[in-house]
Structure formats: C-alpha cells, structure tokens
C-alpha cells in the first residue's frame, strides 16, 4: 500500500463528550438529515446502542459497538478494525463519524483520524450538556475528564440549551468559553441541526464578498453565517498560516484552494475547523474548479468580510 493522495482520504469527525451529552441523539439526527453525504458511523460506547438501525440502512452506513481498551490488550484494536471495514465499503463513505466513548480522551480517538491509513481528521466536536456539564466538572470520578474533553475540542457544542433558562445558558456559555479556551462554542436546541458545521458538506454557496445568514431548522436567529473570501494571484504561505491562526474563535470552518508563491509554492488545500487548521499540498494533477477562494463559516454576526480579506491579501500579488 503506497501513499494515497489527500483527496482520497476519508474525513473523520469525532463526536465526543461525557455520557448524556447528547452524542447519540446528534448522530441519529445527522443520519436522518438530507445533507447529501454518505455517512459511516462508528459507535464507541458502552451499553445499549440506541442508533436507529433503519436510519443507518438508509444511509448505507455501519454502526459498530466498541468497548474501551487498555494498553495491554491493544492487540485487539476494535476501532482500527472497524475503520478498515468502513473504508472497504463500496460505494465509499463520504465521511466517517466516530462517536467516542464517554470516557475517551478525544485526542486518542482523533489520532485514528490523523494517522489511520485512508483517513484524515476533519474535526473533534465535543458536546456538553448545558444543564449538567458544570456539575459534572466537579464530580470526583469524572470532573477532570469532563474538563479535559472540552479542552481537546476543535468545536464545542452546548446541547439541550432549551432546557436551561436564558441566564443559566449565559452562565454556562461563559464557563465553556473559559474552560475550552480557543474553541468556538455552538448551541443546540431540540430539533436544531446544522450539518454544515459538523460535516464537510458541500459548502454553502454565497456570492463573493457578501456575508449571508443561514437559518437553522430550529426557531429563532440565524444558525451561522458564511462568506467567500477571494484573493488574487499567489499568496505568501506565512501570511495564510498567520490568518488561519489568528482569525477569531467564532470562525467555524474554512475551506479552499490557494496558490502559494516561493519554493514550496503551488496549489494547496487550506482548511480550518474550529481551532484546528491544516495546509496540505494539492495532489498531483489536481485541477480544481476554482482557486483563490476560501469559504468561511462562522457564528452569526461575526464574519467581517473586509477584515478576513485584508488579513489574507495584504501581501498577495
């Protein structure tokens, strides 16, 4: 088996968080939503599996129940096994969603996305039950773990937000912001789902230069905004790296193809999901429909198109 081109790698999204955070509900909704992606779902948790089998059948997905392991029995690597089975599916899955065990360190699961043959990591999304997460964070058995899980997140999603008062939600958002320093914090209410934020869906289309709000399927304010940032010519890689690093926490997803100048120039695939970003050389012979565009998704009312463009273009020629 040789090196595969990056575009062949299947993106892996890790859905983590302690028991009761709403991982299974979220995955069920992702499976039933018409987002056009073929999902393969790996459930890595203990006890009863509540994924709706009918939903999975409809998506040609696969659910595999995994138990936590320890180092000395790592020879039985059920997660790796399950990934191999999913990667062998024909037709292939567009995306793999791994439900991490409630006691997993998300970094350990993310490592599979990063380095398992055929996979690349899309994002680690850590769910937090808005009602209980603060109390859990003080639990003698799992408090430290709950906090550590949040600190490993690329994106944090506060769930069950409709079950707390407005003041309560404000307090928990403050706490999450402080605890998961640097990760954007999404809120989720019953029936509300934006697959664009959790998956690498077909990116929302928007006219360049315009910021556009996208309604969620729940009530209330817009779920997220998107913008297309256009650049001309080739870019200084250092500048792009700095921008990816410095853009505010409210930027949820960035994806596009840019051409860099200099010795290590050429076409590159640029991505950011929450606080995780990457720049990979485009595969040989890759002919994109368009270059010089970045699609940016962010929390409502936070994308300042001019600033985003300026931070990239200052040295573009």
């Amino acid at each position: 088996m040789g090196a595969s081109a990056p575009k062949d790698l299947v993106p892996v999204t890790v859905i983590a968080g302690y028991l009761g955070a709403g991982k299974t509900t979220l995955i069920n909704e992702l499976l039933s939503h018409d987002h056009g992606r073929r999902l393969a779902v790996l459930v890595n948790d203990f006890g009863a599996v509540n994924i709706d089998a009918a939903l999975i059948a409809g998506h040609d997905g696969q659910t595999i129940s995994l138990k936590n392991g320890c180092v000395c029995c790592s020879i039985a690597d059920e997660l790796g096994d399950a990934l191999d089975r999913v990667l062998a599916l024909d037709p292939a899955a567009d995306q793999i969603v791994i439900e991490a065990s409630g006691v997993a360190d998300p970094a350990n699961v993310a490592a599979y996305g990063q380095g398992w043959p055929g996979c690349r990591l899309d994002a680690v999304v850590v769910l937090a039950d808005a009602e209980t997460v603060q109390a859990r964070s003080r639990d003698q058995f799992v408090g430290e773990l709950v906090v550590r899980q949040l600190r490993r997140a690329d994106i944090v999603m506060a769930t069950k937000c409709d079950l707390v008062t407005e003041a309560g939600l404000a307090a928990v958002m403050d706490w999450l912001t402080e605890t998961a320093a640097g990760a954007p914090i999404l809120t989720r209410r019953a029936g509300q789902l934006e697959p664009e934020l959790l998956l690498e869906t077909a990116q929302p289309t928007a006219r360049p230069g315009r910021q556009r709000s996208h309604a969620g399927n729940g009530p209330g304010e817009p779920a997220f905004d998107s913008a297309v940032v256009e650049v001309d010519g080739t870019l200084d890689r250092d500048r792009v790296e700095a921008a990816l690093q410095d853009w505010p926490d409210s930027v949820l997803r960035v994806k596009g193809i840019l051409r860099f100048n200099g010795a290590a120039g050429g076409l590159h695939i640029v991505q950011r999901v929450g606080r995780r970003w990457s720049i990979e050389p485009a595969p040989n012979g890759f002919t994109p429909d368009h270059t010089g565009k970045l699609v940016v998704i962010g929390l409502p009312g936070t994308l300042y198109h001019r600033d985003l463009t300026a931070s990239l273009n200052r040295q573009a020629q």
């Binding site: 088996m1 090196a3 595969s4 990063q114 380095g115 398992w116 996979c119 690349r120």
Partner: peptide
C-alpha cells in the same frame, strides 16, 4: 508493508 504517509501523519 506500512502506509508510510498515514503513519507519518500519526501524532503517536
């Protein structure tokens, strides 16, 4: 017969 590209990306 390792996929060295994948192994190279693995943090561990």
């Amino acid at each position: 017969d390792l996929d060295t590209a994948a192994a190279g990306r693995h943090p561990q």
